[in-house]
Amino acid sequence: MDAIGVLMLCPMNNYLEQELDKRFNLFRYWTQPNQTEFLAQHADSIRAVVGNSTAGASADLIDALPKLEIVSNFSVGLDKIDLTRCKEKGVRVTNTPDVLTDDVADLAIGLMLAVLRRICQCDKYVRSGAWKLGDFRLTTKFSGKRVGIIGLGRIGLAVAERAEAFDCPVSYYSRSKKADTNYTYYGSVAELASNSDVLVVACALTPETTHVVNREVLDALGPKGVLINIGRGPHVDEAELVSALVEGRLGGAGLDVFEKEPQVPEELFGLENVVLLPHVASGTEETRIAMADLVLGNLEAHFSSKALLTPVV
């Protein structure tokens, strides 16, 4: 398959890059000084695109590559891919579901514990050398807190299972009530928030779920409530979130994603009740290798006319 042109959109994983280089004719899009010229020059040989959650196949890119057959995505989210255009042009799309579910759910629980028990602040305090005996502050218990989940898909369910082991009652919001679970269902996100101590965003980003956490939801969650976002930045109205936190209308937040990554609102930097992470929910060595293997497996299956491992389109 080393004649097949594969366009990798940005650096995402060394192992994946090496393996693509070994097995295909790999083009590194980010190293091209003139990308328009590059596309015109190689349009006839590029048959696959590898993207991720920050760089995907836009309509323009799809149109510029007439021989494109497949977009094999190194992420579970597809919000950077123009799926409609892919369907129109008969371009197959794959993602990497399931393999990162555990990591994202693990980090969601880690963020809940870090925010409620102020673990990052404790660490900062000890490292400052200021610890004196008897000098302590109470933090908030996690076990038993009411956990509300927006989106009870694979990741939402994995968060729910973990939260149950901490004796947390679990409830959820999704477009429709799920038949196969006993978790409490709420028909609106605001209703879920007003019945939760910890609200977790775990749904896919679509036009409908953009800003699904707005001012009304934040106010329903309230000054003791904690928001955890391990979904996508645009799920949350970030300006409203920042003002709710700064004004003390929200109890705290654990955020792995932001609206304009890698920009994080600087007003958050001084707050003790937030934990800020650089989009690392699926960022473990083990999972990146599993994701890379899926990207490679989907490409190899496609070009040897076998069934795709994890097809979306």
């Binding site: 629980i109 880690g110 870090a114 028990r117 673990i119 990052c120 901490f166 473990t284």
Partner: peptide
């Protein structure tokens, strides 16, 4: 709870990432 929180923090480098 705290033990689990510390373990996740160390493995996933939460405090360092913050």
């Amino acid at each position: 709870d705290y033990a689990v929180g510390l373990a996740i923090d160390v493995l996933r480098r939460v405090s360092a990432a913050d």
